Structure formats: C-alpha cells, structure tokens
Amino acid sequence: MRNDEISRIVKSDNTILAFGEKLCTKRGHDEEQHNYIRQKLREVGRLLKDMRSCSGNVEKSLENFMYPDAFKFITQSCKNVAGFDGNTNTYATPSLALKIGTTLQKCLKILISKGIETSNRDLQTRAEDLSKLFEINWTDDMSSNALRTLHEAKQNSQKGLLPLANDVKVMSEYLRHEAETHANTLQGSASDCEKRQAWHKLSEICLC
C-alpha cells in the first residue's frame, strides 16, 4: 500500500489487519489479487478515518466502534464515505456502499471469533448483536438506495446506446438482401460446397 494516512490507519488497527490476513490467506497466492486486497483494506480504512473524524477521537479502533447502539453512527459514516446525497437519496459511489457492508460483516465475524477464543463474552455478544442489526436493517438503510442508484445509472447509460432508425433500416435491408442471395444459391445449380456455405450463412442471417 502507498504510504498515506489511510495505509497508516490500516496498519495500526488490529481488526483491519486480521481482516487483511484472512484476505491474504485466501487470495494472497495470486499476485493478480493483490490489488483487490489493497482495495478492500483501503475501503475499511477510509471508513474508520471518517468514524474517527465524526466521533472526535482519532485514536479509536474499529473494534471500539463495533457496538449495537452505534449502528446508526456506523451507517452514517458509510454514507459519508460513499458520497450519499440526502436530497436525492443517491450515492456518488453506490458500489462502495454495498462493498463496505459486506466488509463490516466479515470484520464482525473476526471479532466474534476473537471473543470466543479469548472468553470475552462482552466482545462476542456485542459483535453478534451488531451483526444481527446489519442483517435486519442494512438493506433498508443502505443497500436499497445503493442498488437503485446503480440501476438508474445503468438505465441512463443504455439510453445513449439506442440505434437510430436509419441504422436499423440499413441493417434490415442488408439482411433481407443477403437472405435472398443465399436462398437463391440453395435453389440454383451451385456445387454442394457452395450450397453448404450458403446454408450456413442463411442460418446466421435468420438468427440475426
């Protein structure tokens, strides 16, 4: 990772490092996946930076934010990072809003595992409760608007790809002319080889 504030946050947080370790165990053998690992770590690092900024505590770890009563605070930081616009209910980066939710769920599993391994019932319980809140509320609070933003962006991009009427007419006339040509070849006195080629071409034109 390049040396900046986000990478320093990542390297100093035990939960994010544990998440990175799992990513490396699963994908680290493939060099092409290294960029994906960096991207995932930077996503959660940016989120932690925003949560620290909003809370006024620049030393707080990700684990310290993982409480059920902080769910609304966490979702607000997710919205901040993904560029949520409250006036239009859309995201500047909707895919990021979806990815962060998945990443946080994985981080919560890491904390649940840590709580079980260290017999820390408080950590285990609050991580489990927060995970349940994600399952219950995340779709309504985050995912639905992110998916809608992606859908609208896809529709808008497709509008510019509609062909002109003249283009459709030219294509239609060309296909009709080619179909008649190859049909005549099949009905004429062409060689077997020529007829096989004409049949092949005619079948493609019919599919078009």
Rank of each mutant, 00 (worst) to 15 (best):
R52M: 03
L41F: 02
L186G: 14
I136E: 15
K22I: 10
K79C: 01
A18H: 08
K169F: 05
Q33C: 01
F84V: 04
G160L: 11
D13Y: 02
T149C: 03
T90Y: 03
S144W: 06
A190N: 09
T15A: 05
D4L: 02
M1S: 07
Y91A: 04
E128R: 13
N14Q: 10
F84C: 05
T102V: 11
T185A: 08
Q33P: 04
A183Y: 13
R196N: 05
G56Q: 08
E31Q: 07
N80G: 02
Q105T: 13
D85M: 09
E43P: 01
C206S: 14
T185K: 15
W199T: 09
E63I: 09
A146R: 03
A198H: 11
L164Y: 12
L41Q: 04
I9A: 02
L150K: 06
E21M: 08
H151N: 09
K109T: 11
K72M: 11
D30Y: 06
T139C: 08
T102G: 04
S119A: 14
K201P: 01
M142E: 06
K40P: 01
L164M: 10
C193Y: 07
N89L: 06
S203C: 11
R42T: 05
R46Y: 00
V58M: 02
K159H: 06
I110P: 02
E32P: 06
R176M: 13
S144T: 15
Q158G: 02
R42S: 00
K22V: 11
E194F: 12
